[in-house]
């Protein structure tokens, strides 16, 4: 388990990095990168949940019976979930990029601390 748990720790570090970029950075693009890193950390976490050392693809054919497959095959569900989550992340990213361009067009800056018309 030693290998896997260090992977989980690194995964958490990645997540922390994303949150740091999201909170501490003022540049819009860096904030967007923070959001993306965070999303990908969660995706990686989901993939790790289904991971098995020396696992095989979860397809049953004549060479393997159901019991062996259940032991050896990787979990297919997280992969399906992650694919969906990546697509959602892509949509969010496209919207964020478009908004960043529009914000730059209006405010002529990428600095979030100067974009502060709304108060109160």
């Amino acid at each position: 388990m030693g290998g896997t748990s260090s992977l989980y720790i690194m995964n958490m570090a990645l997540m922390g990095m994303g949150i740091y970029a999201l909170i501490a950075k003022r540049h819009i693009i860096k904030k967007i990168i923070g959001v993306v890193i965070m999303e990908y950390a969660i995706n990686l976490f989901l993939i790790l949940l289904g991971y098995k050392t020396d696992g095989i693809a979860p397809i049953q054919d004549s060479s393997i019976n159901a019991a062996q497959l259940a032991v050896r095959a990787v979990d297919p569900l997280p992969q399906a979930l992650v694919l969906t989550s990546i697509v959602i992340g892509l949509g969010t990213l496209a919207l964020m990029a478009a908004q960043a361009i529009k914000l730059y067009e209006k405010y002529k800056t990428f600095d979030m601390s100067e974009i502060n018309r709304l108060r109160g």
């Binding site: 999201l22 819009i28 209006k106 974009i115 502060n116």
Partner: peptide, 19 residues
């Protein structure tokens, strides 16, 4: 100006919530 700023803030916090 205002709409974009509000929308961007909402988007960032909303993505954080979704995550």
């Amino acid at each position: 100006h205002e709409e974009l700023e509000a929308s961007f803030k909402y988007l960032i916090l909303g993505s954080f919530a979704s995550t």
